[in-house]
Amino acid sequence: MVNELTKGIFKENPIFIIMLGLCPTLAVSTQVVNALGMGAGVIFVLLGSNIFISLLKDFIPEKVRIPAYIVIIASFVTVVDLVMQAFAPSVSKNLGVFVKLIVVNCIILGRAEAFASKRSLSESLLDAVGMGIGFTLGLLLISLIREVFGSGTITLFPFGGFDGVIRIPGLATQPARVLALSSGALLIMGYLKAFFNWMELRREEARRWPAVPLAAPAKSETASSSARSAS
């Protein structure tokens, strides 16, 4: 059961391993605050759609399952969009069209088709949480690198007297602007994917060729050698 939760975070991370939902990932990862808003939206929609699709799996006819999934997903996305516009208008403004585009985010439809439509409610719920957190963490990592090096800032939510922007001395005045552009998103994504592939390869090798500890010398041999040194 725990595996259903953790697999989305590490082993089957939607961004770096399954490589789903890359369009919004590349588009909104310009600022950390966008990653948080988008991540929260995707977690909510994933949870809602996985729960409902799992509950209705015996009711939804096989032939029209995809249109039915799209209706359910689009409804949850519209709820997120309306709620964000009403209660978090600045985040809604920042994310713009990408909230609406969660409807066609492959992670949501992918999990509905491959998982929620075949599994129990509890498993689907854990899968949604794990995949949602995995997506959010991946998005956060890319946006943190892009914003820090591409703009020299870390943008969070403003509160009190804090305007929400942490300016990094040195980088804020001379950022590597290419990282904030679309090409920078592809570059960062490529390097991170290569890094995770390398990590996976190392793990594979370690599993195949486990490190053999140096064999301790046999007791009799030790005894004879100490006798030899004494003489």
Binding site: A27, V28, T30, Q31, N34, N94, L95, G96, V97, F98, S151, A180, L181, S182
Partner: peptide, 9 residues
């Protein structure tokens, strides 16, 4: 607007 975050925004 509906511009791209970080660019047109």
């Amino acid at each position: 607007d509906e511009e791209t975050p970080g660019l047109g925004k």
